[in-house]
Design a binder for these strands. Sequence first.
DNA 1: GCCTGTTTATTAGACT
DNA 2: AGTCTAATAAACAGGC
Length: 270
Amino acid sequence: MSPCSSFRPALEENSGVHRRKYKRYAKGTYVGLLAYILQDSPNKMLTFRQIMERLGVFVAGDRKGLENNIRVCLSSNKCFVKVPVDPDYPNARRNFWKVEESCITPKMLRRHFKDMTDMLPSLEPQCQVKCDTGAALDPPSPASISKENTQPVKFSSSFSIESLLKNDHSAHLRIPPVQDRGGLNDLRLTPAAGSSVCWERSVYSFTQSYYMYSSAAAGLSGIPAVRKSLSAAHEHALYPSQLSSYHSQTVQSRISASPPLPHDLRYLRW
DNA sequence: GCCTGTTTATTAGACT
DNA sequence: AGTCTAATAAACAGGC
C-alpha cells in the first residue's frame, strides 16, 4: 500500500449535492504542513504570500480554494499567531505568521504529526505516555483554561517541534539523495542514526505524503491534482537537509546564509 | 479590484 | 452511535 493509495477523488458521480470537492488527505493535515513550513523557514515565520509560495511546490490546481483553506487554518488555529511585518506601524493585514509552540498540545502533535510518529516508533511511546495521562488530552475545563494560558505547555520531548527541528538543524549526517530513498516502509531506525535521521526522513515522507486534490482538478475535471515534480532548487528549498551538497555546509554557514531578521525586512514588499 | 484576515455554516472522516 | 474536528465554501470587512 503506497502512502497515498487511499487518496480518492471525493466527488460524487451526481455531485452538486455535496459541497466537499476535496478528499480529506489520507495523511497529514494543513496544520501539520503549515507548522512544518513555518518552522523550517529561516526566521520561523512567513507572510501569507510566502507560505503560499512554499505550498505551491506541493500543490497544483485551484489556488483560490487553497488560499482560502490556508487562511482559515491560520486564523482558526491558535497555534498560529501573527507578527506584524512592521512593529512600528502594525497593520492588521500585513503580518508574518509563526507557530506558537506553547499552544501545541500533545493531542495536536499526535493528530497533525501522526504520520511522523508512525514512522518514529521510538518516539511514539513518549508521546503516548503524555497523551495517555489524560490531563493533557482532555478538553480544557473553563477553570483550567486560565491556568493553561498562564502556564504554557512546553514540550521537551524529542518529538516536540522545537526538539525535532533542533535535531534537524544540527544534523551533519549524510542522507541519500531523494531518488535513492525508499518509501515509508523502508525506514529503519538504527541506534547510530539517531533522531536526526528519523526527523529528516520523517519530514521527507511527511511532505511527500501531501498529494493534494485541488478543487479545480478534482472538482472540475475529475483529475486529481498531483504533486509537482520538484526542481533541484525546490528540493533544496523544501528539503535542504536531504541534499548531500547541502550537508557540505556547516551549520554556521547555514545561519549566515539565512535572510536578515524580519525587522530588517519590514519595508520590503512581499 | 485585489489581497488579507475573520467568521460562519456545512460536510464527512476520525475518534471515543 | 454520537461527538469531535479538519476541510471546504462563501461572505464580509478593511487595507493597499
